[in-house]
Design a protein around this nucleic acid. Sequence first.
DNA 1: CAAACATATCTATAATTACCGATATATAAA
DNA 2: TTTATATATCGGTAATTATAGATATGTTTG
Lengths: 100, 100
Amino acid sequence: MDLKTATEIGKCLSNQTRVQIMEWLKEPEKNFPPHETLKHFNDGVCVTYIQEKSGLSQSTISTYLTNMEKCGLLISTRHGKWSYLKRNEKIIKEYIDFIR
Amino acid sequence: MDLKTATEIGKCLSNQTRVQIMEWLKEPEKNFPPHETLKHFNDGVCVTYIQEKSGLSQSTISTYLTNMEKCGLLISTRHGKWSYLKRNEKIIKEYIDFIR
DNA sequence: CAAACATATCTATAATTACCGATATATAAA
DNA sequence: TTTATATATCGGTAATTATAGATATGTTTG
């Protein structure tokens, strides 16, 4: 990982809500209700659940999640009209190796 | 580590210069000239060297380093009129364990 | 195709951070 | 104890980020 990428990740992790989201996504079944259509958390948690739990506006959370995906922290998968987000453990590991 | 501390650390790591400093301090002997009074890097690198290498003003770097120390990322040791900074590997490990 | 719903993007304002020069403080040296 | 040097803090402006509402886009469903 290069300095620029690491800094972008750092920016995502410089806000309490976004760090919290990363924590929530460690254990979807513990932190979110079950999905109604999809019966699993294989691709993570839908945006709506994250938004509701955060208490922030839809547009704010959408922007957060988009940036977190752009810098590689999250992986987004679309199923029909819903987007699901999960942690990108590979990039997280690369980031950890960079700062360690 | 709690959410608040982790976010403070994230803020320190959300700026390219500060991330760069963390990298430089991994290998002081490679990245900085030898200290003239102190003959070692046991307590890290003096502020002046970090400031000169960064290209930013003395006041800016002093503020950066103070904040990085406050959130635990760096350890500061004073020898006479110089302050030396080194990475706090213990906190770095705790941070890594938190986000992993 | 129209209506409903989920998400993304745009535009704007408030809050925070970046960064500097000036000045204060601490320490050492003369 | 004056002077020089290293670091810290203060006060200000520019830049960036936080956040929301409005609107656009994409997708499903009737």
